[in-house]
């Protein structure tokens, strides 16, 4: 397919669907008159689709500071509870993410958690921002599934039968990857440049110019989340780590062990949260 056409079509996507069970829980949270912005924020931060909606909104030119805000909590303060409430009321509900690729949501959440843990280990000043990048790194898969459902199913099939990675199958069928489509939509929605860049290069972190460290962190977080088998990114085996990124991060075996320990704890908490949704 022609990348220009693809880009034009993907950029036309205005809204992303979210998962009904999350939405249900969120509405319960938000309809509670005593709810605080922090509570709503924690909630939104656990869902890539809700997060990207909120960021899209706060970075829209209507508010007058496009491309500035990448933290959910700050976005909520600037939007206000009423707008957030309305934003969520207007959410059209599909089950695309869950149905087309079961586990992608958990994979995203896992990567967000791992990214935050690694960022802290590396003493990066804004771990929450990297966490958001982790949450949204595969948003390109969602938009591709949304816009090209059949073709993407073919990608999944191709990856399975030829034992390829999803990203390789994407390239053979679309000529572009979810890293491309994700960065396009992020740019289109005026996300901060740092987010766009991390999404764009999360599979090729050494190409990132202005944020090599942050991109390397999300790259490794993605990989570590897969390597412990949390969630499902679409791939049944772990891709190789980018050597330059690994060297840049310079983690010792002990660091790595700490990171896995913290991931274990955080993941079992996240699981508790996910299960809470089913009720």
């Amino acid at each position: 397919m022609d990348p220009k056409l693809l880009r034009a079509q993907i950029e036309r996507i205005d809204t992303l669907p979210t998962i009904p069970s999350v939405l249900k829980k969120l509405l319960a949270v938000i309809e509670n008159p005593k709810v605080s912005l922090t509570e709503v924020g924690n909630f939104i931060q656990s869902d890539p689709v809700l997060t990207s909606r909120v960021l899209k909104m706060v970075n829209s030119p209507i508010y007058g500071f496009p491309g500035r805000i990448s933290a959910v909590q700050q976005a909520l303060i600037l939007l206000g509870l009423n707008v957030v409430r309305g934003l969520l009321l207007g959410v059209s509900v599909f089950e695309v993410m869950q149905k087309s690729m079961v586990g992608l949501w958990e994979h995203s959440l896992g990567c967000a958690i791992a990214a935050r843990i690694i960022a802290k280990k590396k003493n990066i000043s804004e771990p929450e921002e990297i966490s958001i990048a982790g949450l949204l790194h595969d948003i390109g898969k969602v938009v591709m599934i949304l816009r090209y459902k059949e073709e993407y199913e073919e990608v999944i099939k191709e990856a399975e039968t030829k034992d390829l990675l999803i990203i390789e199958a994407e390239k053979s069928i679309f000529d572009i990857t979810h890293a491309d489509s994700g960065s396009w939509i992020a740019k289109r929605w005026n996300f901060p440049q740092s987010l766009v860049e991390i999404i764009e290069y999360h599979h090729k972190p050494s190409l990132s110019r202005s944020l090599p460290m942050q991109t390397a962190i999300v790259h490794l977080a993605d990989l570590l989340t897969r390597s412990v088998g949390f969630g499902f990114s679409g791939d049944n085996h772990v891709p190789a780590v980018n050597p330059a990124a690994w060297e840049l991060l310079n983690l010792s075996d002990a660091d790595l062990r700490d990171i896995f320990d913290e991931m274990d704890d955080a993941f079992s908490e996240a699981e508790a949260f996910l299960i809470g949704d089913e009720s």
């Binding site: 912005l37 007058g64 500071f65 303060i77 600037l78 939007l79 509870l81």
Partner: peptide, 18 residues
């Protein structure tokens, strides 16, 4: 500068209303 003023306007408004 205008971006900052708009941000501060929203920040104060929403904090106060919250």
């Amino acid at each position: 500068g205008d971006e900052v003023l708009k941000m501060v306007g929203r920040l104060i408004l929403n904090m106060v209303k919250e």
